[in-house]
């Protein structure tokens, strides 16, 4: 026998688990990781795993992680796009697992992109 509060907790927890199947895309933040051969070779898998870890740790049920193929800028891989609802896409390049907690905390949670990791910063150098 479950109480109403327990049922509500199950609803929340399960929703975050199945939310990628529901339609409410406008509210979701998307993290898109380049996972073609070039991305994987450059270390995209550990990056994706760190994103998953971080997001689970912080119970960010509105964040969806997906992958995409080669974007054609293999030299900048691993590349990650972060798209907040209603905001422009921000592309991070040469992403390493150590950088992920900052991207999640500053950009996904607080809405401030980590400028120094973005493609704009990389192109300047």
């Amino acid at each position: 026998m479950k109480t109403l509060a327990e049922l509500e907790a199950i609803r929340k927890a399960t929703l975050s688990r199945i939310n990628l199947r529901t339609d409410e895309k406008s509210e979701t933040t998307r993290v898109v990781i380049g996972m073609a051969t070039c991305g994987i070779a450059a270390g995209a898998r550990p990056v994706m795993l760190s994103f998953m870890d971080e997001i689970e740790k912080r119970h960010l049920s509105h964040v969806q992680i997906s992958q995409t193929g080669c974007i054609g800028m293999c030299r900048l891989e691993p590349m990650v796009d972060v798209i907040l609802p209603g905001k422009e896409k921000v592309t991070y390049v040469h992403v390493k697992p150590e950088m992920v907690p900052r991207i999640v905390a500053e950009h996904i949670v607080n809405g401030r992109p980590v400028e120094e990791y973005t493609i704009g910063a990389a192109e300047k150098n």
Binding site: R17, I18, I55, E56, S66, Q67
Partner: peptide
Amino acid sequence: MDIYRAHVLV
């Protein structure tokens, strides 16, 4: 509860 990045619905 585990979170997964992709679901394969069969």
